[in-house]
Design a protein around this nucleic acid. Structure first.
Lengths: 168, 168
DNA sequence: CTAAACTTTCAATTATTACTGAAAGTTTAG
DNA sequence: CTAAACTTTCAGTAATAATTGAAAGTTTAG
C-alpha cells in the first residue's frame, strides 16, 4: 500500500467511525485530513483534497472550531485562513468528551431529575417500574458525568495506568 | 407532570440521546419503552404505544435482541412472542460497550495496524506526519479497547469507586 | 393436513440529513 | 474609497436512512 492509498483509507475509515458515533462523515474526514497534515491547510486545500464544495468545507471547518479540535492559523503575507488540528490524541479525546458531556449528558441529567418529580402513584406497578428505571439511570448517568470530569482533570498516563494495571 | 407525560418525555429523550450517539431513534424508543415496562410487551403493544408500523417494530425488536439488550419471553397459553429488557443499567452499559467494541473499535484497530505497514518514505514530512498520527491513534484506540475489557470484567461498584474516589 | 395466528421480509415511500454553488457579506491592499 | 480576495450563508437539490404495509414465510392448534 502506498502513501496515497493509505491516506485515502485513513480518511475513509475515520469518516465511517465518525458517522457510527453520530458525527457527520465530512466533518470527521476534514478532521482526519488535518490530523495527518504537517502544515495548516486552507479551505481550498480541503475542498480539493476531499472533493467537496466550498460551503461544505467552510461549515465543517467552523464546526470543528466549535468543537475546539482545530484552530485558525495566520500565515504572514497571506490573506487566506489556514487551519491546523490539535495533534495530541489525549487532548482531542478530552475536548470531545467535554463537549459531549455538555451537549448530551448534562441535558439528559436535567430531564431525568425533572422526571423524578413527576407525580406518581406508588401503588401502581407501572409507576413503580418507571421510577425505578429513572432512578437507576439518573444514578448511572450521574456517575458517567463524574467520570468524565475525572478524565478532564487527569493526565493521560495516570488515567490509563490506573485503569489498565487492574486488568491483570 | 403526570405519569403519561413523564413516560412520553422519557421515551422522547432517550430517542434523542440515541440518535446523537448513532443509534436509530426508534430502536432507542422501543428500548426505553421496554425499560420502564414492568411486564414483557408484544410486538402489538410496542406498535400501539409508539404508533409505529409492524415492520418497524419487528426490525427494531430484532436489532435490540442482536445487541443483547432485550430477550424473548414465552407466556404460557399464548402464541405471541413477548419481549423484556435487561433492567440492570450497568449490565446494559456492558453489553453496549461489548458490541461497540466488537463492531467499531476492533475494525478500526485492524485498519490502523494495516496502515502502519504502508510503505512510506520517512524522509518526507507528509509521510512522517501521517505515520506519527497513525501510531498515536493506534496506541490510543488500543488503550480504549483495553479499558473496555477492564470494564467488561469489572463490577460496577468497583469500577466507579476506583474512578471516582480519585476526583477529590 | 390446513387454516389461523403469528413473524419476517422488502420494494416503495417518506423523512431526515448533508451538500452544492451562487449570491451576499466581509475584510484589506492599494 | 473601491475592487479584489476571501468567507459565510442558505435555498434548492441530492444522498442517506428510516418507515410503512402488504405479501410471503413460518409455526402450531385442532
Amino acid at each position: 500500500m502506498n502513501f496515497n492509498q493509505a491516506k485515502t483509507q485513513f480518511i475513509q475509515t475515520w469518516g465511517t467511525l465518525g458517522s457510527e458515533w453520530g458525527i457527520n462523515r465530512s466533518m470527521a474526514q476534514v478532521h482526519a485530513l488535518l490530523l495527518i497534515s504537517p502544515e495548516p491547510l486552507s479551505t481550498e486545500n480541503v475542498m480539493e483534497e476531499l472533493s467537496i464544495s466550498r460551503g461544505n468545507a467552510n461549515m465543517n471547518l467552523r464546526d470543528l472550531m466549535n468543537w475546539n479540535l482545530i484552530s485558525k492559523v495566520l500565515v504572514p503575507g497571506d490573506r487566506k485562513e489556514y487551519f491546523e488540528a490539535e495533534k495530541d490524541i489525549w487532548e482531542i479525546a478530552r475536548r470531545i468528551a467535554k463537549e459531549r458531556k455538555k451537549r448530551e449528558l448534562e441535558p439528559v441529567l436535567k430531564v431525568l431529575d425533572q422526571l423524578k418529580q413527576a407525580d406518581l402513584d406508588k401503588s401502581l406497578k407501572t409507576h413503580q417500574s418507571f421510577l425505578a428505571t429513572i432512578n437507576d439511570l439518573d444514578d448511572f448517568v450521574g456517575k458517567m458525568d463524574k467520570s468524565v470530569e475525572v478524565m478532564l482533570k487527569a493526565d493521560e498516563s495516570w488515567f490509563f495506568s490506573t485503569l489498565l494495571k487492574l486488568i491483570k
